[in-house]
């Protein structure tokens, strides 16, 4: 290959970074496994779940846990694991007992998701691998969209998820702008030097609560492969895989995670992290009460960070000018949109219930009615 290129063009050397090689091997192995497992629903269900759990733990949970891990590097890994893992077990355990064997706090009881799949399409099992690759390409793709849209049994359900997520983005953006307009001057003056110990306690409480509320939304993404009413053995399988996965996440903390935190959240100061986590937590909790429709937490997170950037630029306390912040905001938003289109493409490819025409007719109508409902509830 190299010789061929050299013969016909400028001297070029094609190369792969070392960690990209291992990721590539992983991706190929995962696709093969998905391919072999797809015809057997009983196996495919657990393979899909494993991939989704990996994507959720290794990718998505960084949004909520990243700053927590980064600022607690000095603590023992198993202390953090027992704390976060314990909250996970309590949250899904509570749901399992109170929602009749469902671990998603009723998210999967919403119309269009209430029936567990009995047979799988290859792309449904492979969807989490697509997600991992897209994240590697720096696209903030929403797990909810890519996984849940491929399982939705009606286009209306997708429109509802979309409307709720967009409402989440808008609300997060405006809350982010408002809060940081108020506190950014103050923060710049007082948030200097080493943070007091009180902030660490506040961070543990906020991170723990956020993690729990986040799980109430996002456990649906992993559990969508499994039966809606899990028996004890299935529940234990579900809980233990994620619990052990979290253990590995904390054990191998460091380089890679640190990188994702700085890429994904831009926040390393414990005080800012606590405030952002707190707002994030309140928004997610509001939407949990709002309706049982699943939503994208990634969009809420992007909206919140965008709002914060813009507010800090207006107050001239950030690193960027207002124009630059708006540019970043638009870039993030357009990447999220690209991710959305890819998710919908996968959904149409996978899902026999969906076609392009039905999507074009039903989804925008449901989306519009969902958004107007959101604003009328807010009294606007």
């Amino acid at each position: 290959m190299k010789k061929l290129i050299r013969r016909f063009s400028f001297p070029v050397s094609l190369w792969l970074q070392k960690d990209e090689k291992s990721f590539l091997t992983f991706v190929i192995a995962a696709f093969m496994l998905a391919m072999f497992a797809t015809p057997y629903p009983q196996i495919a269900m657990w393979v899909g779940f494993l991939f989704a759990a990996y994507a959720a733990v290794a990718n998505d949970s960084i949004q909520t846990l990243g700053t927590f891990i980064a600022s607690n590097q000095d603590k023992k890994w198993w202390v953090l694991w027992l704390f976060i893992g314990g909250i996970f077990l309590c949250t899904v355990g509570y749901s399992w007992v109170n929602y009749n064997g469902d671990v998603s706090h009723g998210r999967l009881m919403a119309k269009g998701f209430e029936i567990a799949p009995t047979k799988f399409h290859f792309l449904q099992i492979a969807a989490p691998i697509f997600l991992l690759i897209l994240t590697r390409l720096r696209m903030p793709v929403s797990t909810t969209f890519i996984l849940l849209t491929s399982f939705a049994t009606a286009p209306a359900a997708i429109g509802k998820v979309l409307a709720k997520s967009m409402s989440g983005y808008i609300l997060a953006f405006f809350l982010g702008v408002t809060v940081f307009l108020v506190i950014s001057k103050y923060a710049k003056k007082y948030f200097v030097g080493e943070a007091k110990f009180g902030w660490s306690i506040a961070q543990w409480i906020t991170s723990g609560t956020l993690w729990s509320v986040w799980l109430m939304q996002d456990a649906a993404n992993i559990a969508v492969y499994l039966p809606r009413n899990m028996v004890f053995g299935e529940f234990m399988g579900f809980a233990m895989v994620v619990f052990i996965g979290l253990g590995l996440l904390f054990y191998y903390k460091g380089g890679r995670i640190q990188k994702i935190v700085t890429e994904k959240s831009v926040i390393t100061d414990v005080r800012f992290a606590t405030i952002v986590d707190f707002i994030y937590c309140i928004i997610l909790f509001y939407f949990k009460l709002y309706s049982s429709v699943p939503m994208s937490t990634t969009w809420v997170f992007i909206g919140l960070l965008g709002g914060r950037e813009v507010a800090m630029a207006i107050r001239k306390t950030g690193d960027h000018s207002l124009a630059h912040s708006v540019k970043l905001l638009l870039k993030d938003f357009s990447y999220a949109m690209i991710g959305l289109f890819i998710s919908i493409a996968i959904a149409i490819g996978v899902n026999d219930q969906l076609s392009l025409t039905s999507m074009l007719e039903t989804v925008p109508a449901e989306f519009a009615s969902g958004i107007s409902k959101f604003f009328s509830r807010l009294g606007l």
Partner: peptide, 30 residues
């Protein structure tokens, strides 16, 4: 001695994009 400078191109991103498109196309057509 060959003094021509060699351009190094990191191809992982192209590979990933190609894999995505290939797997999707095959899966949908199959």
């Amino acid at each position: 001695m060959n003094t021509t400078s060699i351009t190094r191109i990191e191809i992982s991103k192209f590979l990933y994009a190609a894999i995505l498109v290939a797997v999707y196309t095959i899966a949908v057509l199959a």
